[in-house]
Design a protein around this nucleic acid. Sequence first.
RNA 1: GCGGAUAUGGUGAAGUGGUUAUCACCUGAGGUUUCCAACCUCAUGUCGUGGGUUCGAUUCCCGCUAUCCGCACCA
Length: 556
Amino acid sequence: MEEFSTERLSRLTGMLKRRGIILPAFEIHGGAAGLYDFGPVGGRLRNRVNQTWIDHWQSLGNIVEISCPTITPYSVLEASGHVGEFSDFLIECTECGEASRADHLVEDIHPNADALTKDELAKLIQENNPVCPSCGASIWGQIEAQNLMFNTKIGAGASGRQGFLRPETAQGMFTSFTSIYRHFRERLPFGAIQTGKGYRNEISPRQGMIRLREFNMAELEYFIDPEVEPVHDFSPWSSEVTLIADGHGEVSMTLGQAVDEGVIRHPTVGYFMGWTMDFLISVGINPSGLRFRQHESTEMAHYAQDCWDAEILGSYGWIECVGIAHRGCYDLTAHENATGQRLRAWRTFDEPKVIEIDGWTIDGAKAGPAFRALAGKVKEYVENLPAETKFPHSHNIEGTDLEILPEHVKRVQRTENVNGEWFVPHVVEPAFGIDRIIWHLLDHSYTEIEKSGEDYALLALPEVIAPVDVTVLPLFEKDGMDLLAQEIHKDLCKRKNTFSVYDASGSIGRRYARADEIGVPWCITVDHESLENNTVTLRARDSGEQTRVSIDDLPF
RNA sequence: GCGGAUAUGGUGAAGUGGUUAUCACCUGAGGUUUCCAACCUCAUGUCGUGGGUUCGAUUCCCGCUAUCCGCACCA
């Protein structure tokens, strides 16, 4: 891999801007931090990376793609925990009025202050009275949660509902669970993917494409039965992978080994790590700049049981680009609790369970008039009494002494066949930051060489994601070479999934250089011979080799 | 958000309190050229933004915005 340096980084970002791949957004208005455009070349690059991602996960065979709104009602994100967790806690000094981050004030006192809840922080500050870094006083006001989600209002005026732009695509998959479950004929495991924009109102966007306020995400929510031991084939990944494991440090082992030894805590998480690795390499990430790091239990997000980040080494160091989290039953349970809707799957037992029911219930005709408003409570109480209870039976409900007589109750004795049960599926979620991946594949593909004593830059992009598949170049724009080249160009553009560019300005060498710089894998050159025998030269980007092929046999 | 640095054509740079701001590359037009940034002629295009000081500000001062580097946070 190339050496990363700040000089190389500035040449790369300059090229990306000059050639219309990645540009600061709204620049004529002064720009806006954390917002970027994919330009005339980058637009297609983004689309192809996105589509490659979709194809890759759909090839698992039990995956559907959905698309949900980015505008999300308050209650959805409150249920998911984002309203509570996606916040920084600020506290105001009543002396000077300066707001400080509450967790920063107690970080000397508590080893893990940023993981504390609002109440825990308030307690610590009250007990320890930290000094205001701005004025030195110690008189603090209330802690306020400053949310990192973009607020919006759904609908106008007083009837408008509070909402947010989504901070992740995942919630849409959870709120659509019943529809996806039905689509798959109620059989686990299955998954839903979604690609699209996510929004986080970062305090301080930095490092170009790395931390954005609006970004492209791609997520899979894979629903599994926690009681079924998954069987995965790890044989496709026979080489060792760098893992930084919680409690183990940096180790090198195959994914299969890591799962067998319990370093990776769930086989499906390990399997998706392999699947993730395949994707990243296929779009141009250099495997030597790729590793997986396990979250320590203290930094784990609020929903996760185990989480591995795929980190990619680039000009900004090691950056997390993918998170593969075992979210357990957290999300579906959270939405179930908030809505009262059933977000579960049915598990049929191998053998129906026979349940002997032997107990009591009330005789409504007698107990109703006797206990009136308390009858419901009495029923609940009686049904929980053991079968050997003797009546009359005294009990106090809500301060009232009751005498439950034999005539108020009925014995219940029957056997029931239970064929299965409802359970909350567990979820394994690979979540990709597409922009971060695009940045790194550009960073890894960008190659600076010397050609005839001159600096020469090219993007060694894989063909599947190259923004332009082929450029068509008339050697000279005369004698009909230009007409034939135009004709070939138009024909190529009509082909499915092929994008061609026609370029006739400048010397042939200059045009090859222009194409190489944005990673066009192939150039077709129309020369005098083409006019005679219907052949053209096909030049490969990385080797510069040329072969003569018939126009009818062009491999696009 | 805090601390530090920076902002001049598409890109990279030079320069100045005073007429029309400089250079290279790039881009476009024409010419030339039988396959890897060649050459000739011509052309397009810049002082981030708002205020202040001044007869006059791209230059000095202040605010804002943006970028880069630390701190913090995340995909």
